[in-house]
């Protein structure tokens, strides 16, 4: 079948070879990401696992690495995250409801939408500066849990809004029309038909947003500074530290033992992150299978 075309010199063998070479190149590029992840995880597990013990979770930080622990930072993280969730979920869902269900198509709505997507791209340290100026200084809260939580709330709010909007948008329009047809007003429609079916999606998105906030050190560091806390915050007006800052603190020390403590802290942090992500995935899957029934 080799009836070659006189006007063309396709050099197919060569092109196929180049194709093969590039396939290999693309594959290598993928492996850069995957292998980096594997090396990173292996490295952290090897360094940190020997230092991981019950004592590490229950002890306060100390100058002596062998008895140092992450208790105050862990409790600080839990405090901050709980408050952040408390602030962002209602506001984020409210904003999403406004944009999806009420907002007219006008310039103000457009401004809000552009603004939200831009906020998602603002560096997290800038939120730290905002929180420091606004909550710590102007409102004179001091370097307390509440100031940290409010700062992180502003940081994750755009993500929660985007996730909630997606969840609300995924609710079939027939649900709304059905409820309207029964004579419900807009709020009743939202309350009775839209929100119940959007909740799993909202929850999933919120958990993922919080799992981003939990690893953030930059915005909190401007608020809490590098305190050496040997107590657990008792209320929102106590001083605090969070896990990524404790890890940062340990990484910055020259002694090898503290570096290993940092690795141990990272394992705990990653374990919490993994748990949250798994929870989000389970929620999503459960919801999906149920809606298929």
């Amino acid at each position: 079948m080799a009836k070659s075309k006189v006007n063309f010199d396709p050099r197919l063998a060569r092109r196929k070879m180049i194709g093969g070479v590039f396939y290999f190149v693309f594959l290598c590029a993928v492996m850069v990401g995957i292998l980096s992840l594997l090396v990173l995880l292996t490295r952290i597990l090897m360094e940190g696992l020997p230092w991981l013990s019950l004592g590490f979770l229950t002890n306060y930080p100390s100058r002596h690495p062998e008895i140092a622990g992450i208790r105050s930072a862990m409790m600080g993280t839990i405090w901050v995250m709980a408050l952040t969730a408390l602030f962002t979920v209602p506001v984020g869902v409210g904003a999403a409801i406004y944009l999806e269900e009420y907002a007219p198509k006008n310039r103000l709505t457009q401004l809000i939408e552009i603004n939200i997507s831009n906020l998602a791209g603002v560096p997290s340290i800038v939120y730290g500066l905002l929180g420091w100026a606004l909550f710590v200084q102007i409102m004179s809260m001091g370097r307390v849990v509440l100031a940290g939580a409010l700062t992180l709330s502003l940081l994750v709010l755009p993500i929660v809004i985007l996730a909630s909007r997606e969840a609300i948008r995924a609710v079939p329009n027939e649900y709304r029309l059905g409820a309207f047809a029964l004579g419900a007003d807009q709020w009743q429609v939202i309350k009775g038909a839209v929100l119940p079916s959007a909740i799993p999606g909202i929850l999933t998105g919120t958990i993922l947003a919080l799992s981003r906030a939990i690893g953030e050190a930059a915005p909190v560091i401007a608020i809490s500074a590098l305190v050496y806390l040997t107590f657990v915050p008792a209320d929102p007006f106590d001083q605090f530290t969070v896990m990524p800052i404790q890890i940062f603190n340990w990484v910055g020390r020259p002694q090898d033992d503290f570096q290993s403590l940092a690795a141990a802290g990272i394992i705990v942090l990653l374990a919490i992150l993994l748990t949250m992500n798994a929870l989000a995935v389970i929620l999503r899957n459960r919801y999906q299978t149920r809606s298929e029934d």
Binding site: G33, G215, P244, V251, A263, L270, L273
Partner: peptide, 24 residues
């Protein structure tokens, strides 16, 4: 397989990357 792995890579806190850069 690859996409979730890349998502994990994106979700790793930045202090962890700092640790990785400095110590490895």
């Amino acid at each position: 397989i690859i996409k979730p792995a890349l998502e994990v890579l994106a979700g790793v806190p930045t202090v962890v990357y700092g640790y990785f850069a400095l110590t490895f």
